[in-house]
Design a protein around this nucleic acid. Structure first.
Lengths: 181, 181
DNA sequence: GCTCTAAGTTAGTGGCCAATCACTACCTAG
DNA sequence: CTAGGTAGTGATTGGCCACTAACTTAGAGC
């Protein structure tokens, strides 16, 4: 397998592991094992652990952005928001790890930032800004709508992280908001 | 100083440290140093590290609940939401660590849960449910309004964690939503 | 068949960290 | 004055973990 292919499978494995364990709670050993490769080899593919995490975080944000873009594509403006909301609901169901990884990314940035590492956060913010802008455009350029949409997404992330099961009453508000007005 | 007083100051110190470093990124050593006490003594006051984290997490959620309750107290129904939103804005400004600790709590639950530790999450969910219920009552029992309010709070948490500075355009939507309709 | 390169491994190191154990200092009640 | 409880420390340990260095294998081109 080429180094580039390996790198990609490392990123996917890293996303799964970091999603559950977080940056400090996930050893490079378990990532390597999941990829099916020796642990030191990861450091041939990436300069250090943080770079692996960053790659996984950016992959996670980028693919989420694509999910939204895909859901909105070709629809008239007023149908896009419910379509994107529904796409996110599907994402939660099919691939909850991606959403946990998002949360892990946010706190990892906070941690890096308060250790004086500014660069890491800068990269993540750039990726996140692309997501924001993409959603913003798809929703017709209305700031309030974009903010509201993402806000609901973040509450979903929280409820999933906290392990509130689907169907719990904290989820009630969502079925309303995903429906067209 | 009595053990009970010490325990309380440990909780406050732990909140500050865990807020930045997260569960796995924060050593008991630095908590102890901040309290001004030897590291082994923490294990006289708490059975283990997780118990320290849990106490800090619950303290954090409980005091946040009180901030909301305080802000809403005595106001007519339609003035409560903006007052609570404003109180949260103030909280972000005065004590951003509390909000980072919230994020750390969410991911810590996810981590514990996927290691098979169900009890920890159960405790946190209970605290969080109390927060939800308290806000729900204060906002007049409207599920959608409660959900929306908390959703905005979660987006704020995210933006702060990611280190987007106040005044950044991602924040624009908030000044609208904090204003009465 | 030989060499060069790219993929991959084994063995090891220095540092950190949660938790334990055995001990000390001080206060208070009888 | 002494016995016991309470607050607190120093030393230690066993295990993990990021990262390095040196070695191995296998295919491709000549």
């Amino acid at each position: 397998m080429s180094a580039e292919e390996r790198r990609e499978s490392v990123i996917r494995a890293a996303m799964s592991e970091f999603a559950h364990g977080g940056y400090n709670g996930t050893s490079t050993e378990v990532i390597a094992r999941r990829v099916g490769v020796s642990q030191p080899y990861l450091f041939r593919l990436f300069p250090n652990k943080q770079a692996i995490f960053l790659a996984a975080a950016q992959y996670c944000i980028a693919t989420t952005r694509e999910v939204f873009a895909e859901a909105a594509k070709g629809l008239p403006l007023e149908e896009r928001l419910p379509a994107m909301a529904q796409a996110y609901q599907k994402l939660i169901h099919d691939d909850p790890e991606r959403l946990l990884m998002q949360m892990q990314t946010y706190v990892a940035v906070a941690a890096a930032e308060s250790e004086g590492d500014r660069e890491f956060g800068e990269m993540v913010r750039r990726s996140w800004q692309e997501l924001w802008d993409s959603v913003h455009v798809d929703l017709g350029g209305d700031v309030n709508e974009t903010t509201t949409f993402l806000a609901y997404g973040m509450l979903v992330n929280t409820l999933v992280s906290l392990g509130f099961p689907a169907g719990h009453r904290n989820w009630e508000g969502f079925y309303e908001s995903a429906r067209p007005e």
